[in-house]
Amino acid sequence: MKKNLLIALSILVLIGLNGIRAGEVDTDGAVPGKWTMDLDAAKKIAKEKKIPIILNFTGSDWCGWCKLMDDNVFGKEDWKKYSKENLLMVYIDFPKDKKLVPEKYVERNDSLKNKYGVKGYPTYIVLDINGETILGRTSAGKEKTPSTFIGELSSFCQYTDSNVQKYIKKLKPIDQKAYLEIVSKLSESSTKKATHSTAITALEKKVLNLGKDIIKLQSTAQEFRVAQIGPDEIKKYQKIKDELKKTTTALQLWLKSKPQKTEENNKKYHKMNSEIMELKKQLSAY
Rank of each mutant, 00 (worst) to 15 (best):
E204H: 05
K142W: 12
D128S: 03
V126A: 11
Q176A: 09
C157P: 01
S155R: 14
V126Q: 07
K50I: 06
S187M: 06
L203G: 02
L112A: 03
K246Y: 10
T148D: 03
T133R: 13
W62E: 00
L208W: 04
I240V: 14
T148W: 10
V25Q: 01
N163C: 05
K268V: 03
S83R: 06
L6Q: 15
E85S: 11
L88T: 06
L87K: 07
L203Y: 11
P146K: 08
S162K: 15
E188H: 15
I15L: 09
T58W: 10
N114R: 12
K212T: 11
S190R: 13
S139V: 12
Q176T: 11
A202V: 08
A202N: 09
D61T: 05
V183P: 01
I20H: 08
N56R: 01
I229T: 11
Y167F: 15
I15Y: 05
T36D: 04
M37V: 07
P231C: 07
L68F: 13
P122Q: 10
K34F: 06
G19S: 07
E48K: 14
V207N: 05
K43P: 03
G211Q: 03
I54N: 00
K268W: 00
E181Q: 14
K119F: 08
C157S: 05
G33M: 01
N266D: 15
S10A: 13
F149K: 02
L135F: 00
Y269M: 06
P95L: 12
L186A: 06
R21D: 12
A22W: 02
R137P: 01
W35I: 07
K169R: 09
E223Q: 12
Y124M: 12
K236H: 07
K271S: 10
K271F: 04
R225C: 09
K166Y: 07
K258I: 04
N163Q: 09
I134W: 03
V226M: 07
Y105V: 04
S155C: 01
T201P: 00
H196Y: 15
Q260R: 11
I234A: 15
E48Y: 03
W79I: 02
